[in-house]
Amino acid sequence: MEPHEFKLTEDGIRAVLPPLEAEIMEYMWRARVATAGQVYEHLKKAHPDLRRSTISILMNRLCDKGLLSRSVDHGRGGMRYVYSVTTSREEFERKVVQRILDALMSNFREATYAYLSQMRKL
């Protein structure tokens, strides 16, 4: 997943993901594999108005972004979709930092160098 936006006013992964998608990913990084129903039940505690369809759409959107993958589970309880994380949180954060620094270096090369070397001295 390549982040295209960075919101300076948001904390953590919310800086690069919309709020609800960030919450889904936080749950998924803990669970690693889950159904949309399990994610819904978890998030419903914090968002009582949440709908199943919202979670389903956002999880499929996270699949499109390459952060989750969807597969069919044929286990007990019949067929169902299960979602798995495709990348660890650490790897995701590393990619975000890399992408942002690359963008800064290509747009503000001198200022970025200067700031990084200043930080290194500190």
Binding site: L50, R51, S53, T54
Partner: peptide, 25 residues
């Protein structure tokens, strides 16, 4: 109602109007 919500959200997601969909109809 749930299917209507699904369709409405899909349109918004596809249009990119509101990528951080909040759990509201």
């Amino acid at each position: 109602e749930e299917l209507k919500n699904y369709e409405d959200l899909m349109v918004r997601v596809k249009k990119g109007i509101n990528p951080g969909i909040e759990p509201k109809i």
